[in-house]
Design a protein around this nucleic acid. Sequence first.
DNA 1: CCGTAAGGCGTACGCTGTACACTTGTGACG
DNA 2: CGTCACAAGTGTACAGCGTACGCCTTACGG
Lengths: 244, 244
Amino acid sequence: MSQKTDGRSRVRLNRSRVLETAVALADTLGIDALSMRRLAQELDVVPMALYKHVADKEDLLDGMVEVLIREIDPPAPGADWRNAIRLRVLSARQALQRHPWARQAIESRARPTPAVLEYQDSFAGIFLAGGFTPDLAHHVMHALGGRMWGFTQELFDGSAAPAAEAPPPLTPEAQAAMFAQMQELYPNIVTVATAAQHDDGSVVGHGCDDQFEFEFALDLLLDGFERLHRQGWSSAQVRKQAAG
Amino acid sequence: MSQKTDGRSRVRLNRSRVLETAVALADTLGIDALSMRRLAQELDVVPMALYKHVADKEDLLDGMVEVLIREIDPPAPGADWRNAIRLRVLSARQALQRHPWARQAIESRARPTPAVLEYQDSFAGIFLAGGFTPDLAHHVMHALGGRMWGFTQELFDGSAAPAAEAPPPLTPEAQAAMFAQMQELYPNIVTVATAAQHDDGSVVGHGCDDQFEFEFALDLLLDGFERLHRQGWSSAQVRKQAAG
DNA sequence: CCGTAAGGCGTACGCTGTACACTTGTGACG
DNA sequence: CGTCACAAGTGTACAGCGTACGCCTTACGG
């Protein structure tokens, strides 16, 4: 109630308000529907007014990612490297789930902003503090890849448009026919997809527990990191081995 | 020389020609510069003519991905599962390096086409034939994630625009100053980034061997898969353990 | 109180994907 | 060979995008 939106004087725009409104809008409408014009409308302002606060749309997206990063928990102070990494990654994952647009936004960024560099620096710091050589820390961070941000490359999760018009519900017969056709065309996919969902009666896909899959892969990698770390792995020695 | 492009009768358009020209154009211009209009121009045709051969731009991109998939080697016949997967993934990687646009195109696809399903099915088939339970095969494919397509999600590889205007070459003093600033702001990144590039004098980034990083992560995962496979891992048992 | 700079506005341009109605080319069949 | 039907290609048009540029107006420091 500090300022009325009607009447004479309007709330002044600023970068934070622009970024936060953009985040909220992307949360609701999806990233594809977020345009400068739509955002301006949401802020009750003419499109070009935004350009006094962000350089261009790229800068807007960079700013949105920085808002996201601020939501990720800082490194846990007392934890060993493995738990520190694990907790941080899972916290990042939670932030990404609050903001479904973020995966695409992060991936589409061309160059890292300071906030992003800081985020990555803190990861490197955890590994180094845990006794990793810079060499191993380097390769290990590459191996983590996007998982550092809390997502695996899940293709076809269908979350592009939130609440996209679902296809009309199929009759049981149509479902059975579809299943039979899938089974004929892609028997292995059907086998593999139906394995992990006894509890869930749905046809292929969307029956599996994303969180479980994510942690499965994350822990598999962390296990590998730990093993290499313990046995004093170094890339020089591997390259030598490959050459010899 | 079968048909002249000038004179009266023009070469007839068809889906293949559209898709292959689109692929070639994306290879040269980058995916962002590939518009229906630009593609039509390349084919010496009016933009709307394309719509007789592809439903819309989404369909065009789907088709381009299918062209890509056809370039990936089929599973090696005699190999054990581990080599079969490894070879296939590395072949996919080569295809992706020939077509830098493909990573983004694959990631942006909302729903899998038959060609994509077939590709994934063959992966599942390799694991199952190698004696993996459907359960383990499922989780393992999730863990591979995008790596199945030959890419890790490398953020900020700067390959968005091919031959983007490079910043003017910095003087040695400017480079040194920049390095000093990086070292102050992001000491861990500098430590980790400079570790793996004694041969290459460049400042942070782009000095590391992408192929090595990719295989490092891939083999780390394959090692993990192998271990779980040997010890008869099952998700049920893990969940029970977590609960108990 | 006023000058100045920052904030917000309006207009305009070139680009995008694609809907719709039209003409032209081509191959099959009487 | 003539005709007819359908596929292929054209032209125009629209709504939406990011954003360059110039002007007005508001808020604040001297």
